[in-house]
Design a protein around this nucleic acid. Sequence first.
DNA 1: AAATTGGATGTAATCGATTACAAGATACGC
DNA 2: GCGTATCTTGTAATCGATTACATCCAATTT
Lengths: 351, 351
Amino acid sequence: MAEAPVKPPAVRGPVTIQDVARRAGVSTATVSRALAMPDRVTDATREAVFAAIRETGYTPNAAARNLRAKTTKMVLVLLPGIGNSFFTPILNALEEVFSEAGYGVLIGYTRQDRSRETHYARVIRAGQVDGVLLVTGHLPRDEEFTHFPYTVPVSLLLSEMPGYSGFSVFDVENRAAARTMTDYLIGLGHRRIAHIAGPTLNPEANERMAGYREALAAAGIPFDPGLLWTGATNFDFASGEAAARRFLDSTERPTAVFAAADEIAFGFLRAIRSAGVVAPRDVSVAGFDDTEYAFHYDPALTTMHQPRAEIGRRSAEDMLRRMRAGGDPEPTVRVRLPCALVIRESARRLD
Amino acid sequence: MAEAPVKPPAVRGPVTIQDVARRAGVSTATVSRALAMPDRVTDATREAVFAAIRETGYTPNAAARNLRAKTTKMVLVLLPGIGNSFFTPILNALEEVFSEAGYGVLIGYTRQDRSRETHYARVIRAGQVDGVLLVTGHLPRDEEFTHFPYTVPVSLLLSEMPGYSGFSVFDVENRAAARTMTDYLIGLGHRRIAHIAGPTLNPEANERMAGYREALAAAGIPFDPGLLWTGATNFDFASGEAAARRFLDSTERPTAVFAAADEIAFGFLRAIRSAGVVAPRDVSVAGFDDTEYAFHYDPALTTMHQPRAEIGRRSAEDMLRRMRAGGDPEPTVRVRLPCALVIRESARRLD
DNA sequence: AAATTGGATGTAATCGATTACAAGATACGC
DNA sequence: GCGTATCTTGTAATCGATTACATCCAATTT
């Protein structure tokens, strides 16, 4: 008899409200009430119920509760599924707010795949979630989304969908931010400034491009189509590398390059370095996003800070408000946050 | 009459199996059967049911199904909630396999917070998920996890838990990998090799440290405690920066530094660079993980590749197998994958 | 032509919680 | 001492699907 035997949990298998009621000597209704409205039962009853719950290790069955309450306490977050480290702060903030409020966070990666979009649309229609947050840049191509009102509240994060309505939108002032960055580069004395644009079909990418052109125009610098590098299919390293080939092949290279995303800038920086071109010595480079690596890269990247965590937090709070409203047509909101210029090492004053 | 009015969906609000049954002129049992076992109903009936489903836009209610079937088709993935870009490939692979199999992926960030761990333990006990994947490095401190068998299958990813049993474990050969890396640095002519260890309490960090010491011993290099830099609280930039201060203050600096994680290496690289020390010119640096930035950093990082996506995929497949087994005590597995040395630019032969 | 077989379908119980309603108990006022 | 208001608790319906069992009908066998 070397050690005391480990005492197994009192009850194995699913403990139901019936078990608790029997043990506490009350009805299931009373157990339910003791849990939901503790002050509607006598002190003695409450004690007995809680004791029985403790002894049995009871946890209410979620499916039964959901069925009755027509609510699931779950939200679905749809992400594109590529370049995910960018989305991490958003996801983190969302999980923080939602789990605090007792909601579970279901994630779905659509990977731009239509069948995966319909898959998740079915999850929504099946009443498996109380709300949906789209961080994909577009609506799932499914009937669920072709008509307003939707069965559950829907929010758009980081991008808007002109022409559609019925959801809250949380994004940043892409155009103004790109304008600010370009103004900054111009202020450093640059006049031949290239822009590595994001995906052509992406609204944010186009806003950033517009901001870039706006700044040039305001400074009286004629727009040179040869310095607008499009063709990116994503905000990723590869797009930066493609741009680097263009840069290196140029007869007259730009003195500054403004990338539509940090990852694009990193891909660009790495690729030109292989050719012996170093930023900021030989060319100034700026990014957009202020991802965690912007600070830690070499050179530290001058970029526009996007308040990703704040977008996550605020959209989660708005979603909670709308979900709690029940079926009522709770008003949606349109939140557009400013970005902040973060000056680091990768761009410098032109000699 | 400028445009054709948009036709709203046939039915608004939740469509139940009753609605479909009524419309198809059959009983709810038949609808259910037409869906679950199409060959057990006549062609005509099946047609009628499917037509009714199409017309009404019916989707089975998940809660009702879960309640009856005692299954939720959901898995919970618990993550530490810090340094998340490292976990992204795992999460991606998990979502891919699970959603393909019709399972939803619920994420939870524990942030090492006890209350958050119990929160998610309650989610598990409530029968809200059919399986749990822990990527947190430790078991949630909750009664649910103090006794085997658990209510649902549990798997451990990236770390093991000596002394506990009942779950499948998927990790990498940390010790052998660290040995290989250290051997490689020794092979480059280095003898004063420092190791920036991971968190003291982290088993993987300790295995890597053991591999480092093993290699030194095998090469006949006496272990110098002054070159084992502990004190990291996480596998993050900050720990690398702290190590950099130690490096810069050293009277006799090591010629090579092996960091227990890529992010630690990046933090180290950036901090020494501020002091004018450049890798690999002045010091060779190696990492561990092979995160996406290892390739894109400057200098490109020599590191050990951890097959994160494969860990995600294989653990998901094992989990599916165990969940499908129902309540039977399906055997667990122990998968330990090898890492691969990835030679890039940050470490070089000692002159 | 009657008996038997098998396939298709319907009826109703079931999963586990919540909650409207009913009933019982207690206290209070007259 | 009795009626009424208030508070507590129990009974039973309900949420929407699945499925064991019963039933019905047509095809096959004798």
